[in-house]
């Protein structure tokens, strides 16, 4: 426990010690500054508790995988990498990470491909009621959440015979993510000067040519952002694969993580802790790199 950092001890450090006031106002001021001081202390204590609360689970996530005998209690590890070696021997663990990647990439390809086409057309052609459609779609995607639509989705996918297949999972995920993606990408495409396309057009380039030679390369940062964002969304999604996939072989890491700690009678902490870290690391890394580079953005932030 001694290792636990206490991040929110900082509020106390910003507390300025009461400076001696002129004598004539000393009494009143002393009272006020005492109250001020006490409230700062109370505030600091509350924030410290909150900080510790946020830190504790993370500390376990980071330390336990490197402990030769991890336990549920937070403790300074007896350093080792054996847990990871053990993880790589477990057939389910590695396969599930691969499955997550496959689901993420497949959804990303569909979402970026179709989303970019739709966003481009919507950005460049004035369809009557276009903005209405766009906002309608965004609204739809925030209303029809994974949970609210789980029953009809499950039933439809069953009827289509897509249960227990990646096709079903990818299409459902793509349907939920696409509206946001179209919205963001359209904004992005709107900001690309039209003279690029007009110029290409004057030299006789057709629409597909223009898209390939001019628009896609210029829109690359936006597309890359969307691609990463989509993979992160799919990577952590639990509900959709949980209800649409049956066979353990197909399960992505999000579901396997859950089965690891619910279904195995005596939880193998060495395996689970290493798996949890391995599974979390990519999104954590991506997130903090993206956050560093581009700042934190919400973009209607639908987190399904």
């Amino acid at each position: 426990m001694t290792s636990t950092p206490t991040p929110t001890s900082t509020p106390t450090s910003t507390t300025t010690p009461p400076v001696a006031p002129p004598p004539n106002v000393r009494k009143v001021a002393a009272n006020a500054s005492l109250r001020h001081f006490l409230s700062r202390v109370a505030f600091a204590i509350v924030m410290t508790i909150v900080g510790v609360l946020f830190a504790l689970p993370m500390v376990w996530l980071v330390l336990a995988p490197f402990d030769a005998t991890p336990s549920l209690t937070l403790s300074w590890p007896d350093w080792t990498l054996d847990n990871f070696a053990r993880l790589f021997e477990n057939p389910y663990a590695l396969r599930s990470i691969g499955n997550s990647l496959l689901l993420g990439v497949a959804t990303m390809v569909i979402v970026v491909g179709f989303g970019a086409l739709a966003a481009y057309a919507m950005s460049r052609i004035r369809i009557p009621g276009r903005d209405g459609i766009l906002y309608g779609l965004l609204l739809l995607s925030s209303i029809v959440t994974g949970t609210a639509a789980m029953v009809p989705t499950f039933q439809i996918i069953t009827q289509l015979g897509l249960i227990n297949s990646y096709t079903g999972v990818v299409l459902v995920l793509a349907g939920g993510i696409l509206p946001t993606v179209i919205f963001i990408l359209k904004d992005f495409m709107d900001s690309i000067p039209k003279s690029y396309e007009e110029s290409a057009r004057l030299y006789g380039a057709g629409p597909f040519r223009i898209l390939r030679d001019v628009v896609a390369p210029i829109a690359r940062p936006g597309l890359a952002f969307i691609a990463i964002w989509t993979i992160v969304q799919v990577w952590g999604n639990f509900l959709v694969p949980f209800i649409l996939l049956r066979s353990p072989d197909l399960q992505p890491a999000a579901v396997v993580m859950y089965t690891f700690y619910t279904e195995s009678g005596q939880a193998d902490l060495r395996l689970i802790s290493a798996f949890a870290l391995l599974f979390s690391a990519p999104v954590l890394i991506i997130y903090f790199v993206v956050n560093r580079r581009y700042g934190f953005r919400f973009h209607g932030g639908i987190k399904s």
């Binding site: 003279s195 110029s199 390369p217 690359r220």
Partner: peptide, 13 residues
Amino acid sequence: VAMVFQDYALFPH
């Protein structure tokens, strides 16, 4: 026809 745009429209990539 060929055209030079006011912002030149040179492809940045």
